[in-house]
Amino acid sequence: MTAVATAPSSLTRSAGGLRGRRVLPGFNLTLGYTLVYLSLIVLIPLSALVLKSLTLTWDQFWVAISSPRVLASYRLTFGASLIAALVNVFAGLLVAWVLVRYRFPGKRIVDALVDLPFALPTAVAGISLTALLAGNGWIGQYLEPLGIQLAFNPNGVVIALIFIGLPFVVRTVQPVLEDTERELEEAAMSLGATRWQTFAHVIFPAIAPALLTGFAMAFARAIGEYGSVIFIAGNMPMVSEITPLIIIGKLEQYDVAGATAVAVVMLVMSFFMLLVINSLQSWQRKRSGAA
């Protein structure tokens, strides 16, 4: 016992050997419960969606997912999500940088406030952004005379998605920025680099994986977002109708098969994004492990 305690290397080795017979109880119980609950809540309903889509013929499926109105909704959903996620990369990096590197009054409150889009129900965000940006709103009244319309068109979709995605970028970049080694920056400075060069060649490469992960998460969330968007979008077919709304519309017309087909397209996209995020995260872990 004491021999193990004095030599940490032998401790880890013996722990590896012990893994065969588990000391902690409850593995079968917790794993069993986890699998049953996961199957009931997620996997069985998910398979219902996939199996339902298999009852469609290929032609039915193709017609449902490629009508002009649906294609326009893909363009809007992906385009707006992409723009919003890109804006969030810059804004999120700026906010994370300011929160990690600088001191200013009210910093704690600002830090807490960043999570607001996680905590505020999306429908509330939707109606309040609409109230702000509509022609008689606090912001809208100044923009309308200039001919800028931000509500009830695709601009509104982008703004709602920026709101929804912001914390994803900030909260992924923030911890990585906190962990970057100041010594490397000092070394760069002492070798004659300007502050901008240090940022571009020392800091940025260190946080790039986290930034990309945040981008992917914000993008993935934006694609599926519904509540905040429908109030501000105006929901005009072919112009400002997002894909989740197409699914709801088909359901309301009792076109369950069509709704399922479009949902499968969204599901495939979600799985793809999940795969991208997972590989980005393991890249990030490898990076920080190597550093």
Partner: peptide
């Protein structure tokens, strides 16, 4: 398993609702 636990985060809420309609709905 960890990925499966995270899965509901990446599925659009509207698609999630539809899944339950397909299990429990009239059709």
């Amino acid at each position: 398993l960890t990925t499966l636990v995270d899965l509901p985060f990446s599925i659009s809420p509207v698609v999630a609702g539809l899944m339950y309609v397909l299990v429990f709905g009239a059709q």
